[in-house]
Write a protein that binds this DNA or RNA. Structure first.
Lengths: 192, 192
DNA sequence: CAGAACATGTAAATCGTTACATGATTTC
DNA sequence: GAAATCATGTAACGATTTACATGTTCTG
């Protein structure tokens, strides 16, 4: 359900085609809420049916077309309502910690490989997020730049501060996962 | 898909009825991998069809029945294979950090309420997990006690160490989320 | 004999993943 | 004219949620 609001957040800055939206999505909000293209396009159609956005069909070359999506007042309000409503938390469902609780059932090699992979996985996420933090600081992120362009001077600082805040949390999370996995590797070494 | 292996992990310790399994589940692995009863019972049936477990129908009083489930060799092997296989990581999908990235679009009050709720949420998870850690140390958790009873002396230390390791990671995660939200509250105070 | 605990689900809807599918236009 | 990029999906399946549904047996 959050996909809808992630998309609205992007479109509120200014109209985008499905394709451009999808690209911006993967470069910004997609780091926090993954969705494949095959979910984005249908969701846009659904949002259009609900009147949250309107799609304006545009010609492109001889035969091609593309739809530019604009947020409607209803869509804007839906986003603001979501922001003001209590967040629906998902239940914990954490395969890595599930497996960690049963590491004694497998070989030290397999346990080692699992934690190594955990480090690889989170190192990759960490790189994404530190990269995004750097782009926030340099105002290199295209969505952020567009957003700041339509933001009154006095609100720019807040916009940047909250973006930083969000990504800092993710960076800390990744660092903690890596530190945890390293401790696990030490534990395996001691136990075997 | 991990639900299957969470259930196998419990059943490998010894046979349980669906009902007992469901209770043990919510008191142990359920803290790491949530599933409602309405998912557990059908999954058990599916696992039985796949030959991973066998259900033995038992009379209970005059008319009642219950199914005791045993892990088959195939089920045991499936669990060990899963433990040895690379873990399938889920894509990031984090509504709290998504919302955090857009806190400037709402009122300071709503932003404040959101982070307060985040603290409440993670404080509750934290309590679950520190409680579980305490039960691990006291060997009060019934599943752990049963598991240790069928574990050779020399492996008990490892079993406990890995359980601790898994829950320590979760405790740190919860503490980090709380610390992050507190920093967010400071930020809101400074920004408004 | 009432209430708690035992015992086991089904149905409908939504969400998300994976694989597949197609064609147009711009750029070198 | 080939490759990259633009542009937009569908179909099938599996996972998850939510709500509903029902009856039995033990304990005080």
């Amino acid at each position: 359900m959050s996909l809808r609001y992630a998309l609205l957040a992007l479109l509120r800055v200014g109209p985008l085609s499905g394709y451009d939206l999808q690209k911006q999505f993967h470069q910004s909000v997609g780091h926090v809420w993954h969705a494949p293209d095959s979910q984005i396009y249908p969701e846009l159609r659904k949002m259009e049916q609900l009147g949250l956005i309107v799609g304006e069909e545009q010609a492109r070359g001889e035969r091609g077309t593309r739809r530019m999506y604009h947020v409607t007042d209803a869509g804007d309000q839906a986003f603001l309502d979501w922001m003001a409503a209590p967040l629906e938390y998902q239940r914990v469902r954490d395969p890595a910690h599930l497996r960690a609780a049963y590491l004694e059932t497998t070989t030290p090699d397999a346990a080692h490989a699992f934690l190594q992979q955990h480090i690889v996985q989170w190192t990759s996420e960490l790189a994404q997020w530190t990269g995004e933090l750097a782009r926030i600081d340099a105002v290199t992120n295209p969505m952020l730049a567009r957003r700041l362009a339509v933001t009154p001077e006095k609100d720019r600082e807040r916009t940047i501060a909250y973006k930083r805040f969000a990504y800092e949390g993710l960076v800390e999370r990744a660092e903690a996962e890596i530190a945890w996995a390293r401790r696990g590797l030490d534990l395996i070494a001691r136990m075997s």
